[in-house]
Design a binder for these strands. Structure first.
Length: 726
RNA sequence: GGGGGAUUAGCUCAGUUGGGAGAGCGUCUGGCUGGCAGCCAGAAGGUCAGGGGUUCGAGUCCCCUAUCCUCCA
């Protein structure tokens, strides 16, 4: 057989993709009804495909046999049923789904397929959410979201308009309880997550429906009977409105749906999105040579902050070099170009990882000093990035590698505080509030965790109180190395998606917290000093973020706040405690004054203006300098004139330091003679060096030549006389 | 990581050649009223997400930032 049938991935040699591949043997079973089912595939992985043929299959250094047998397919075979969904542990679930959807399950029809899809998706999502993979916007989270939405859509197409998926996880948990009893523990949480996602998607559909109504109106008014692929793709990519649903709605209105156009548009979108430049931050070229020579640097930073180490690598401008001489010395600030990387055989510098920032410090050699500005970790190597400050250094020299102790201590405080915050969040919000991301800097920590809604002020205070209670308790902090299984047994916090080695490092804070963590910590929580949560916010749907400060930074913050308060109180000449009351009174007063000012301004002289009015052909013309009024006040004034003295044509202007504002308004009777305020105002506006326009009944303009205002007003008056006489 | 969109009253949202910030619901006041969203009249409530730019003039156009939604990887 050819590469089409007998190769994995199918047709890989000629069509790709690049990568490992090989010939395979597929095992088929013929069902009693004559259908053939593939139940097993054996892949003899032996090639690395590079580029197009010919001669594009290179041998792999080590070959292997990868084999997979479909468990459910085999069950179906052994149980003599025609589908995975009809085996003993899945059929009951299929039937439960059918009940929930008010359907009789008929395997062969459209709804049968929908019911099976819902069954599969809700089962997958129950497990995923149980493992704390929540529906979200990227990577595995996005997969969960798509599965849920597809299932809701299937429900919608069977006439369901309410959330229903969330009623199913208990059935999944009970069906699977023999092998996965732990599902029962989280089933309530899973239910809530699914319900929220369902509601969100139904809202998306609802919101899209009005938009789609407009779309159909457009299609009908232009006489077309086709929903364009572009439109469908825009609705989908922008608002998440599923094309299948749009097609159904189109059919109801006798419109066809352009699937080809849709797929083309989606492909274009995929290309545009995928075209994002993914630059390698660190080209490991020069490191590769080192990696061949040695395994990595030894890390001693848990025990000490200073080592005597040998320089084993120097990388400058992306190349390995022998030495740095005096012409490499940098004074003052350095840019990224000038950064040099030093690699030592052993070091106490912590390399940025696990959210904890790298250390800074100094390397002191016999002929020179090197300032380490950041430390990164690449493979097993610690990269000391920085600049040469004095003298010279060269490969093979011994240096004193000294970590900035004050900063390291601040980082340790923040890191241990992070563990305390994590524990407190779980205590008050529930087990689901697990870490999603974390950044630990000097006396500053940022912690993202799963939680649906904002944490209210009171709860946040309780969390902060508990953290500080644990600080005051001066609890001992200890780290130990132990097998992964033992750590799991001890109840250590582990994160989904993290790959842990067989031997892990567990950081325990008394009985308060146990986490697998490679970071550096205080010996005793009392060293943290104080933890102050300064912010709580949303990162994206389902994820919240808290930011907290510790130690010196906490103290600094209190000082600043205090200074701000004192300054404000001094400015208002009241004691600090009276500030809120005083401010409230002031804003109220300000508001009243403002209102008084505008009303006084606008009816400054309605009567006077009317007296100066000139009547032409039954219309009163009012043109005046409204000294000091802004546009809003003049509009108000025009309103009043129109109300009191129609028919009337009004043009007011005011000038102030290099700025002229004109407003013109005419009453309805005047407008009906074909006269427009917008046209009227044009000439005077150009006289003051500006332009203007507006609606027929009200127009606005402005310019810069304030000295020309009288001339412009005179012109306007003359103009209106002329217009009215015609 | 990248593409598209959104952000206007307490809530749901209107607001197009750029020219007077609106509706419904809710709140408050007064009056009418025999009910389950009772009726009428009136009022309060807005830094149009924030910042910059273009313009005589920006909720509206351009740029940046923040947040949320959405699709792709």
């Amino acid at each position: 057989m050819g590469e089409d049938d007998n190769f994995w991935p199918a047709s890989a040699p000629s069509q790709g993709p690049d990568g490992v591949c090989g010939p395979c043997s597929e095992v088929f079973y013929q069902m009693p009804n004559g259908n053939e089912v593939e139940i097993w595939n054996l892949v003899f992985t032996q090639h690395n495909r590079i580029g197009d043929p010919p001669d594009n299959l290179r041998p792999l250094p080590s070959r292997n046999i990868d084999t997979g047998m479909g468990l459910e397919r085999t069950c179906a075979m052994l149980q003599g049923v025609d589908s995975n969904f009809h085996i003993d542990i899945l059929l009951p679930l299929v039937e439960t789904v059918a009940d929930t959807c008010n359907q009789n399950y008929i395997a062969g029809d459209d709804n049968g397929r929908r019911i099976r899809r819902i069954t599969d998706h809700v089962r997958a999502c129950t497990f995923a959410i149980h493992e704390n993979v929540l529906p979200g916007n990227n990577e595995e989270k996005y997969v969960v979201k798509r599965l849920l939405r597809r299932a809701v859509l299937d429900g919608w197409q069977m006439g369901i308009r309410e959330p229903f998926l969330h009623t199913l996880p208990p059935a999944v948990a009970s069906q699977m309880k023999h092998s996965y009893p732990e599902l029962a523990e989280t089933v309530e949480h899973v239910t809530n997550v699914i319900k929220r996602e369902e509601e969100s998607f139904l809202a998306t559909i609802g919101g899209g429906l009005t938009r789609i109504h407009k779309l159909f109106e457009g299609i009908h008014s232009s006489g077309g009977g086709l929903v364009g692929g572009e439109d469908a793709a825009e609705l989908y990519t922008t608002y998440g409105f599923p094309p299948e649903l749009l097609e159904t709605l189109a059919a109801e209105r006798n419109c066809a749906f352009d699937w080809n156009g849709f797929r083309e548009a989606m492909e274009a979108h995929g290309k545009k999105s995928g075209a994002g430049t993914r630059v390698e931050v660190f080209t490991s070229g020069p490191l590769d040579a080192l990696k061949k020579a040695m395994h990595g640097s030894e890390f001693l930073g848990y025990e000490s902050l200073q080592t005597t180490s040998k320089i084993v690598g120097i990388i400058a401008q992306d190349r390995l070099c022998e030495s740095l001489a005096e012409n490499n010395v940098v004074n003052g600030d350095s840019d990224a170009q000038q950064l040099v990387t030093i690699i030592l055989d052993k070091t106490s510098f912590y390399g940025e990882s696990g959210g904890q920032v790298g250390d800074i410090g100094w390397l002191e050699g016999p002929q020179g000093t090197f300032e380490v500005l950041k430390t990164q970790k690449e493979g097993g190597f610690f990269l000391h990035c920085g600049v040469l400050r004095t003298g010279s250094i060269e490969l093979g020299q011994e240096v004193s590698a000294i970590v900035d102790e004050r900063r390291r201590k601040a980082i340790r405080r923040a890191h241990s505080a992070t563990h305390l915050v994590h524990a407190a969040l779980q205590h008050f919000l529930g087990k689901h509030a697990v870490q999603q991301g974390s950044k630990v800097d000097a006396d500053l920590l940022r912690f993202d965790f799963s939680h649906a809604s904002a944490v209210d002020h009171e709860t946040l205070q309780q969390i902060e109180a508990m953290v500080n209670e644990n600080v005051l308790a001066a609890a001992p902090v200890a780290a130990s190395l132990l097998p992964l299984e033992e750590a799991r047994h001890a109840g250590a916090m582990m994160l989904f998606g993290e790959k842990y080695p067989d031997i892990v490092r567990m950081v325990s804070i008394d009985e308060i917290s146990r986490e697998l963590c490679g970071g550096t910590h205080v010996n005793n929580t009392g060293e943290i000093g104080l933890v102050k949560i300064i912010n709580e916010e949303s990162v994206s749907a389902g994820t919240r973020r808290v930011i907290a400060v510790t130690g010196h930074r906490a103290l600094e913050r209190f000082r600043q706040t205090e200074a701000t308060l004192t300054d404000s109180a001094n400015a208002l000449k009241v004691p600090v405690t009276d500030l809120p009351k005083r401010l409230q009174a002031l804003t109220k007063e300000l508001k009243t004054l403002k209102r008084q000012a505008t009303t006084q301004q606008s009816d400054f002289s309605i009567e006077e203006l009317l007296r100066s009015a000139e009547e032409v052909d039954g219309v009163r013309i009012v043109v005046a300098d409204a000294k000091g009024c802004d546009a809003a006040a003049m509009r108000h004034c025009i309103d009043q004139l129109r109300r009191k003295a129609s028919p009337v044509a009004v043009l007011l202007g005011s000038a102030e330091a290099g700025k002229v504002t004109l407003v013109a308004g005419i009453s309805r009777e005047v407008e009906s003679r074909g006269i427009s305020a917008g046209t009227w105002i044009r000439e005077p506006a150009s006289l003051v060096g500006g332009r203007g326009g507006g609606r027929p009944d009200l127009a606005q303009a402005g310019g810069k030549l304030s000295a020309k205002l009288p001339e412009a007003l005179a012109h306007a008056k003359q103009d209106m006389r002329g217009i009215l006489k015609n």
